[in-house]
Each structure stands twice: as structure tokens, then as C-alpha cells.
Design a protein around this nucleic acid. Structure first.
Lengths: 144, 144
DNA sequence: CTATATGCAAATAGTTTGCCTGTTA
DNA sequence: TAACAGGCAAACTATTTGCATATAG
């Protein structure tokens, strides 16, 4: 189902000279199974279900390792805690400013998106696009 | 030179039922004169030049008021401190992952940018685009 | 075996809050 | 002359670090 299977995780870690551990597996599993862009704290709570001994610092550690290895993506949308998502394909995010929900948006195929009037000699590695507004649920509640 | 003159500031504040104060003017002036997307701390340091009595909490207060009134924009690029910019026209940002420099990028006129496969009933208020990579200076230093 | 990762607790960074005083409309 | 804003210090939140112990390769 997911892009990365368990062996792949060990391999990707090994490639970067990093060890496979129970905790890294657990944290990865939690993110891979989550489709709500959880925060580090939410990941910690979920990871505790399979390993009540896991520590918060380890969750942070594992997450930063997974991000480094390109197995998990970090999403920064506001000054709230950073969120994580297992979707490594190119995609955008929709962020509901009312309820905080985050949604993956496919990049439109015809979305002739170019990097604009960027001065020469600039190198673009990645383009982050976040649409901000109200989700369907919050839009229908006429409130505000 | 700038989009907003001083009278305008007082007016915009008044429209939101807010008062004009020396500190709000000073903080606004600092941001308006800055083209390097300063952090709250940098704004504090610069504001102290014209008013050594100003407090850090007041700078935060003034900034959030100015952001609310649409006079200053908040830019969130990473887990580092929030940055501010006086450019209220639609534009994107380029963020150098090596030196941290932030640059305004004009939205390409032909930049066929549409909000993609967004489910019905979603309302988009704003689109945040950040290009990440290396600036010209960091690109030429082959380092990394 | 030994370098690396974990767990815990304490430290840090950025930001926010509470409370009293000063200032604006 | 009130309601609002500033100043200061303390609180808070998210994250990082240091260090002793455990574990993967």
C-alpha cells in the first residue's frame, strides 16, 4: 500500500550509515499510517500504543532522521507545531485556517508552474505550495 | 516610495478600532524600510535605535496588530523565527537553504497557476509559494 | 565489541501572558 | 477620563541537548 516497505526503511537508513531500530520503525509506521499530518506530539502519543516506553526526545530524533533520509516530509504551515506527512510524491497542501485541517492536493498536471523571474544562478531544489482558506465543512458553517 | 504612508497607518489602525501609537509607527517604519525579511528580534534591535525604551513584548504586539490590519506580512519558512515583510502585493518567496536569505519573487504574469484539484466547497483565501534552494552566492561557492 | 541510539531530565528559543502604569482619542 | 497600549518579568510551548545506559551491526 505504501511506497516504502519495511525492508526499504532499513535499507534507506543503511545508505545514510544509520541503524535500524525498533523506535525508528515504530515512528515511521505511525507516520505512514497517518493521513492527518500529525504533529510530533501526536506521533508520540500514537507510537506509545505499540511501545509505551518510547520517549518524546526519541520521537523527535527519529522524525529528523526520517526527514533527512527522505522517508517523511515536514510541513510548516504556521507557528503551530511542525506537521509530518508520509506522502513523498510532489504535492501541495491545503490548510484550513479555521479548523487547522491539512489536506494533500495533487499538483495539477497542466499546472504550468514555473519558478518565475528568479535571478540567474539560483538553484531551486523544491517548491512548497500551501493553499490557505476554509475547508468544505468550515465553509458550510457560515460562521465567520 | 512605500505603498503605505504614515497617515494611512493611522487610518488603517482606526478602521480596526485600534489606536495609533509611537511604537506601532516605529515598528511599522522598521519593517517598511527593511528588505531582508527581518525576524521579530531584528525588528526589536532596529526599533531600539529610534526608541531605546521599546520592549520586546511591544514589538511582538505591534507586529501582530500590523499583520491583522494587513499592513505587514508574516512569512513562515522553517522552524526558525517567523519573518516579516512589508510587501503586501502578491508575491512568492525564495528561501536559500544554505544562508537563510529570503528574496521576494514576482509572480510570473503568465504563471498559469491554478489551485488544482481542490474538492468543491473549499474556499481559498491565499496561496503561499516558497521556492527553496541556493541563492546565487551560495550556488557559486561549490561547497556542499 | 563499540559506535550509535535511546530515555530521561534539564536547557533553550521563540513567543505569549498578566499585571500594573502610561497614553491616546 | 476611560479604554487601550506599553513595559517588565514570568510563563508557556515546542524543540534540543547532555549524559548515562542499552542495543544494533
Amino acid at each position: 500500500m505504501h511506497v516504502h516497505e519495511n525492508e526499504d526503511l532499513a535499507q534507506r537508513l543503511a545508505t545514510s550509515g544509520l541503524r535500524m531500530t525498533r523506535q525508528r520503525q515504530q515512528v515511521f509506521d505511525v507516520v505512514a499510517e497517518s493521513h492527518d499530518h500529525p504533529t510530533a506530539e501526536q506521533i508520540f502519543e500514537r507510537a506509545k500504543k505499540s511501545n509505551p516506553e518510547i520517549s518524546f526526545a526519541t520521537v523527535y530524533n527519529c522524525l529528523s532522521v526520517l526527514v533527512e533520509c527522505g522517508l517523511v516530509r515536514q510541513v510548516i504551515l504556521d507557528r503551530a507545531p511542525v506537521r509530518f506527512c508520509p506522502n513523498m510524491r510532489e504535492h501541495w497542501h491545503f490548510y484550513c485556517e479555521q479548523c487547522g485541517e491539512v489536506l494533500d492536493i495533487d499538483v495539477p498536471k497542466d499546472g504550468a508552474f514555473h519558478t518565475g523571474n528568479l535571478p540567474d544562478a539560483f538553484t531551486v531544489n523544491h517548491v512548497d505550495v500551501a493553499l490557505r482558506g476554509k475547508c468544505n465543512r468550515c465553509s458550510s458553517q457560515q460562521k465567520n
